[in-house]
Amino acid sequence: MNFTQQLVNGIVLGHAYALIAIGWTVLLGVARLVNFGHGQMYMLGAFVTWYGVSRLGLPYFVAIPVAMLVGVAVGYVMQRVMLQLTLKQDLVSIMIVTLGFGYVLHGAAALFFGSTGQILETPFSTKDIYWGDLWFTYQDIAIVIVAILFFAVLKYVIDRTRIGRLARMVAEDPQLAQLAGVNVRRVYLGVFAFEGAAVALAAALVAPRTPILTSMGFDEVIITFVVVVLGGIGSVTGSYVAGLALGLFTAFFGAFVSPAYATAAAFAVLIAVLVVRPGGLAVSPGGR
């Protein structure tokens, strides 16, 4: 295990983390909402893609939009059910409800897809690239490219377009936004549908790297937490940087210390930052 190889692994892993966290970042930064079912939605995205490719025989490029559509539907239904809580800004209840949704998704996915581990194979993940003594796959390149593009487009949309302004306005002051004629419900539903699509896309791209299990949502979400909190809650650029940093950290920690405790170590970093800068991490809603 040489240093450069770990650097490559870390960069790929970092872009994967950032991509997985993007839905949460938007949810939090733009609408001040949380979703503890994020990990299970990631799991669902991975399994829908897997089912499309290996059971229905769909091409990978068709299975991705299908998974994203399922993600949109799940996100929409979730937000539709808890719309009253969202309008009341009852974050405590929203947290528990989304946790409940995650649990339901886990049960439903295990019922439908079975509880055995699967491998999601894509046209890219089986093609290796050797460059000197470095090794990676075309899937890794796809992850990095899509993550960079996604973040660039997202930043542009949030900062520069009407949709982005509306969403930020709703985050800043839902009541005022409503008075100004913004359809607050639609913004909330839209943001949650976006979260569903974003996490499904991330799952379709990232899940081929490791075996997938219906129970994986539980730990998967923790990386997202760390990325979102370290990046400055809800900040798009911050999430990208934090994702990348966390990826590098995990790669090196896994290679040189212990892969089993890599998640625990990432969490220890989070705790350390929270103790040192408890209040300094949060930025104002809609902040970039």
Partner: peptide
């Protein structure tokens, strides 16, 4: 550790503690 944290950040950290404890 969570003294200063409120609402979802508090929940998020406590959830993370549960995941790490499981590992």
């Amino acid at each position: 550790v969570t003294l200063q944290l409120r609402e979802f950040v508090f929940s998020l950290v406590t959830y993370a503690v549960a995941v790490v404890a499981a590992t």
